[in-house]
Design a protein around this nucleic acid. Structure first.
Lengths: 198, 198
DNA sequence: CAAAAAAAATACCGTTTAGTATCTTTTTTA
DNA sequence: TAAAAAAGATACTAAACGGTATTTTTTTTG
């Protein structure tokens, strides 16, 4: 049990609460005033811990988002025995997760890519790390499946990774309009797509 | 050749230019002041034509976005002979379109869903019409293919439509981070997925 | 052409925004 | 425990925001 200083607690409090606000309202639409109101942290304290809003946003990506993504997707992929099944299960678990995600607000990573990547290189670079790591984890998983004879040799792991990621990211978008039912339709077709790889 | 009144020209000018600005910067990040600066239309004129910013935004969805979507996706789907090929071609054309879309900024529909659907019911409803119409066009196309024996009987058209749409919407998101190359990876897997339906 | 209506121009308002300067309190360190 | 450094509180700024009230110009209509 590592003890956290009061300062670290304040910092983490800001990061976690701001993460939620940004998830629900978007980065640019979440004001500093809103963040200090919900965290009960004063503006002086916030600007002591972060030099500006973007610095805080980047810290959220690195210290809040990345760990969530890592433990829920990259880690399970690394020790997958049946690649297709594992990929399917991860997506299913992700879509059914009610702790960090919900249907209305979609996925925090996807949201941030959508909003910030086109015009903010710092955000874009930070987010790219997440995407690339996730992509490579899927790719490795597929290649491993090929070695084990579970997946056809002529399957391109990189392509599959992109296709799977695009499906996930897209169903999060579609879910905002069509609601939860479309998650199930997506998952069924994902399963049959993955099965078609063997 | 229908002649447009000066007022209609002003209105259309606002709608088209604002569409582009919103596409590139997001709806909330595009200010009224920015719109009147690029359109060379005064604030008085803008607020004569639209009662507020949201009214203008909804008009853009209905009068600019819907026609683009309709002519580039729904119309071609209605007269498709080979469903799978037509769906593939539409996606390929859409992703290669340089008139209304580009890789950096993604897809204007997807962007707007992402940003506005979660917390604005007017926008959500207007966008839902586009999504549902597109989804049903794909679904009909698949069902027609089943009748013609080009697609397996046990394929669920509605599920396929959702899966295809999620892929499109998602690759637009991924493209913002990974650039154009991922479009090609996506298209290849889309093709093999569609082929697996027969 | 003249009156009426539509369209557009101008100046402004109240609020919110990210960020800062300054001061006070708390914690750490010698 | 006293000095130094870290952390937090308070009050403020200048710019940008969506929107409005009012006036002027243009177009339509009798």
């Amino acid at each position: 049990m590592t003890s956290m200083s009061k300062a670290d607690t304040t910092r983490m409090n800001i990061l976690n609460k701001a993460f939620l606000l940004i998830y629900m309202n978007g980065y640019q639409a979440t004001s500093i005033d809103e963040i200090i109101a919900t965290t009960q942290v004063t503006k002086g304290a916030l600007y002591y811990h972060f030099k500006n809003k973007d610095d805080m946003g980047l810290s959220i990506i690195k210290e809040v988002m990345y760990p969530i993504l890592y433990s829920s997707t990259i880690q399970p992929l690394a020790r997958a025995e049946k690649p297709q099944l594992e990929i399917y299960k991860i997506m299913r678990n992700l879509l059914n997760d009610e702790k960090f995600f919900n249907v209305q607000y979609g996925c925090p990573f996807v949201n941030l890519v959508e909003e910030m990547a086109p015009h903010n290189t710092s955000f874009s670079n930070a987010l790219k790390r997440l995407v690339v790591d996730w992509k490579e984890a899927i790719e490795c998983c597929i290649e491993e499946g090929k070695k084990q004879g579970l997946i056809r040799d002529n399957v391109n792991g990189g392509q599959v990774a992109i296709f799977v990621l695009s499906g996930y990211s897209g169903i999060r978008n579609l879910g905002k309009i069509l609601g939860r039912p479309c998650y199930n339709a997506y998952l069924k077709q994902l399963k049959s797509y993955l099965q078609s790889l063997n």
